[in-house]
Structures are given as structure tokens and as C-alpha cells.
Amino acid sequence: MARSKEFDPDAALQSALELFWRRGYEATSMSDLVEHLGIGRASLYATYGNKRDLYLKALDRYGEQRNPRLLRELSRPGPALPAVRAVVRRFAAEAADDGLRGTGCFVTNTAAELAPHDDAMARRVELSWEHVETLLHSALVRALEQGELPGDRDPRALARMLLVLLQGLRVVGKASADTARVRDAAEQALRLLD
């Protein structure tokens, strides 16, 4: 008869995500994971596979948690441009938040640490960025169609610029205590939507 798990795999995955997000992949050892999750090494391997497999699952979980919020924010009925502005300002506020400083964005962290030499990580980063870009593009197309955005603006190019801005805000916010830097950058970028 198989033994039942003595831990909650979902809660353990969330805990692993938080540890990887704070420390990064290389700085997190299997011993760190065993200690942080409070489960045995054999159970960890049996449930998630190796450290890389667990990291990939954590990265997927991060997207599952973040993407629905962004979708809700950018697909509400009515004017689209205020929603785009609100998302950019939210990212800037989160990047400037003292409580979040040092963590950045899990996808951005993965892009910097692992994507250059790990194809599976690079694919997940690219899929995440494509998702964000698509949501921004759709909102900007709606804004153009509703007359909120000047007719000479390219929604695809603007969506790409905003994606790069959002990722940059996360990087700068992670390393800098100068909150004006991220807020000013966001406001300057938003002027391109006028």
C-alpha cells in the first residue's frame, strides 16, 4: 500500500517559488529547499524531480498567479488607456516598494540568470513576455479604435516598449533605493501615449 504524502505539495511549491524568487536558482541549494520546505529530500525528488524541475514548476506557478490579474486589469470594458496607465503605474509602485525591493520579477530574474544558457527557461521567459505584450497590444488597439490614442501610434511598437519598460522597472527597482528613478521613468514613458 502506498503511503500518503505528509505535506501539501501545492503549499510546498509556493514556498519553493518564494525561496527561488528571493535567492535565485544558483544561490538556492537542495539542502536549502529541504530545510525551507520542511520535507525530506526523497519526498522532494519524488514529488517535483530535481532542483531544475522544481524551479520550472515554480516559474509556471508564478505565471499562473500573475497573469490573471494583468488580464483582468487590461481587458475591462470601457476606456482602455486608463487601464494601461494604471498597470504601468502599478509596476512602478511595486518596483519602488521597500517591502518588495530585492525580489524584482521572478520572470525577469530568470531571464537574467538562466535564460541565456537554458533553453527551457528561455522559452518560459519568452512565453511570459509574449503574453504581457499581447495583453498590452490588445488594450492599445482598443484605445486606438476608441479614439483614446492618437491615430499615428503603432499599438504593437508601444506594447513592446511598455513590456521593456515594465521589465526594466523591475530590474532597477530591485537594485536601487531611488524610488523617483522608477516613478519618473514610468511617467515619461506614459507621455508617449498622449
Rank of each mutant, 00 (worst) to 15 (best):
D97V: 10
G40I: 00
R101H: 11
G151W: 01
Y45L: 11
L190V: 01
V171N: 00
L114V: 03
Q14T: 07
T103E: 07
R123N: 03
A42N: 14
D98R: 15
A92I: 12
S176H: 06
R89W: 11
P116N: 06
D178C: 03
R76T: 11
R76F: 04
L33K: 08
N67T: 08
L136A: 05
Q65E: 13
G104T: 07
R142E: 12
R85T: 09
P82R: 06
G168F: 05
G99H: 12
N109A: 13
Y62S: 05
E130P: 00
A95R: 03
L74F: 08
V84L: 06
H36D: 09
R72S: 12
V132W: 09
N67S: 08
R72D: 14
L17V: 05
E133F: 02
S29V: 10
R52N: 04
L135W: 01
P116S: 09
R76A: 15
L149F: 06
P116E: 07
R76L: 14
R156G: 00
Y55W: 10
K57I: 00
E113V: 06
A115K: 04
T103W: 05
L19H: 06
D10Y: 02
L149E: 03
Y55F: 15
D152L: 12
N67H: 09
E35H: 14
W21A: 05
A46L: 12
A180L: 12
M30F: 04
Q167Y: 10
A120C: 04
